[in-house]
Design a protein around this nucleic acid. Structure first.
Length: 364
DNA sequence: GAAATTTGACCACT
DNA sequence: AGTGGTCAAATTTC
């Protein structure tokens, strides 16, 4: 244990150093750029890269501060004490595969506690529109348990993917109503969808449309499968807050299920948030740049805030050179020249983020 | 009747 | 031993 903790510390330290070195390198390039009069776009993107590097470095430092953790962060640490995750709480694909393997290895042992999937993503959802439960995320879940949690006013509910048996999908999530604000729900996703939901939007099932159904005594959830229309409606007015990134708030310019945070694609297929599927640009962008399984660096930079920023200003995301070229070609208004010598040697870092997804009051 | 939910019990982890 | 995650039988819902 001690060894692992030390490893983790040195690994985070290295990540921090990498971030600072990256910021310095790009700053140097920027300095060179300043000598040429025709590089405004490049300068702009370089400034953003520098800023994001320092932002990441600060995040790492904040995460290591023993007294500055948010509730969500500290809980995430508890749940995931040793697993390196990317900035959005997701793990690298190898970790996910390992987690799934773990699950599959023990699944025949009845009643035996399953090995906790290492991948996790934690979000906080607010439902201000009068709905009883938190938002839908585009997946079908089946409740398999509920527990009273020590120190928590409300019980925690446990959900697994409906297609666990039929498609061997081991994604799970936990939902817990917030003590401080009963309108808030902390949702922790674990594991990755390996079912068809991971790639395609599943048609809402009649039997699962329970938004109008009287809620259970626990008032906490929501197996409803919203129509795509409703979901898109909701997502279009989504706002996202990050707890530890300066409380930035921005309107989400695109649609995605909450589970998209941190999801990585599988080897043989790409996962696109269901709500993005109808938009070829966003869909391809999502696949090529935000969820590239081949580049851990991409995952590292896939924090929710970065997702927002990237859709807002696509070129901001540091990633592999080829990715940058793609981004630039996709978004030609940004710059015409790829940044030379774009090199990152980043490791994933354990940073969990609490995202507040605020429902639009006029959501129906 | 099938699928989903509830709930007490089991078990791993700390 | 306490806590939290999961199982599975019973119950409910569709």
């Amino acid at each position: 244990m001690q060894y692992k903790m030390e490893n983790e510390c040195s690994w985070e330290y290295n990540t921090l150093i990498n971030e600072l070195i990256q910021g310095m390198d790009v700053a140097k390039r920027l300095k060179e750029e300043l000598r040429t009069p025709y590089s405004l776009n490049t300068r702009d993107s370089q400034v953003k890269i520098i800023l994001s590097s320092y932002e990441k470095a600060l995040q790492i430092l904040k995460c290591n501060e023993p007294t500055s953790k948010t509730q969500t962060m500290s809980r995430a640490k508890t749940l995931l004490p040793e697993s390196p995750v990317s900035a959005n709480g997701s793990l690298l694909s190898e970790d996910i595969d390992g987690a799934i393997q773990d699950h599959q290895e023990v699944k025949h042992n009845s009643k035996k506690r399953k090995v906790t999937p290492k991948w996790m993503d934690q979000i906080r959802v607010s439902c201000e529109s009068g709905l009883e439960g938190p938002h839908e995320d585009g997946y079908n879940w089946r409740k398999y348990g509920q527990k009273d949690i020590l120190g928590a006013k409300y019980p925690r509910s446990y959900y697994r993917c409906t297609f666990r048996n039929t498609q061997n999908c081991w994604a799970t999530k936990q939902v817990q109503r917030s003590d401080e604000d009963p309108n808030m729900f902390d949702i922790t996703y674990r594991g990755r969808h390996t079912c068809s939901q991971g790639n395609n939007v599943t048609e809402p099932r009649k039997s699962q449309d329970k938004q109008e159904k009287p809620q259970s005594q626990n008032n906490d959830i929501h197996h409803a499968q919203p129509s795509q229309e409703n979901f898109t409606k909701f997502s279009n007015t989504l706002t996202v807050k990050t707890d530890n990134l300066g409380n930035e708030e921005m309107t989400c310019p695109f649609t995605f299920p909450s589970t998209s945070f941190g999801y990585t694609t599988q080897e043989n297929h790409s996962w696109v948030p269901p709500a993005l599927e109808n938009d070829s640009f966003l869909s391809s962008l999502f696949q090529s740049h935000l969820l590239s399984p081949a580049t851990p660096e991409s995952n590292y930079f896939s924090s929710p805030t970065f997702h927002m920023n990237e859709f807002d200003r696509v070129y901001n995301k540091p990633c592999s050179e080829s990715d940058i070229t793609e981004i630039i070609s996709t978004n030609t208004s940004v710059t015409n020249s790829p940044i030379p010598d774009f090199h990152f040697s980043l490791d994933p870092v354990e940073i969990s983020l609490s995202i507040i997804l605020a429902f639009s009051p006029n959501r129906t």
